[in-house]
Nucleic acid binder design. Structure first.
Length: 103
DNA sequence: AGCCTGACTCCTA
DNA sequence: CTAGGAGCCAGGC
């Protein structure tokens, strides 16, 4: 059984550009349905130069869960992806949510 | 072991 | 939309 971290990474790299997903969804796709909190903990430990699209992961409310500078960083990344993000960090899950693997 | 914390989620009001 | 409470899991002390 692959470890938790690797499974999470495997899911992250599959998130298509221009889409977002939630912590809970990532955890579920990785095979750990109730580890949403741990997903966030793992992302918090990522190096700043990581290739992983950590910025495409937001909470189930469609809001960026970060604060301060981290929040702005993620928001800019999403905007660069063509995702509409409001000033408060809200994203339209209706339009940009990636639920599972389309393939 | 217990207690606290967190980039979470769901339910109720 | 906000606010409060409960459930959830792993890690640190």
């Amino acid at each position: 059984m692959p470890n938790f971290d690797d499974q999470i990474y495997a899911v992250l790299i599959q998130i298509p550009a221009g889409k977002v997903t939630t912590y809970g969804n990532v955890a579920k796709l990785a095979g750990f349905p109730r580890h949403a909190r741990h997903v966030g903990k793992l992302l918090s430990s990522l190096p700043k130069d990581t290739r992983l699209p950590w910025f495409r992961v937001i909470n189930a409310s469609g809001m960026i869960s970060l604060k301060g500078e981290s929040f702005e960083r993620q928001r800019e990344k999403l905007l660069a992806d063509g995702i509409e993000v409001k000033e408060n960090g809200a994203v339209s899950l209706r339009r940009f949510l990636w639920d599972g693997e389309p393939c």
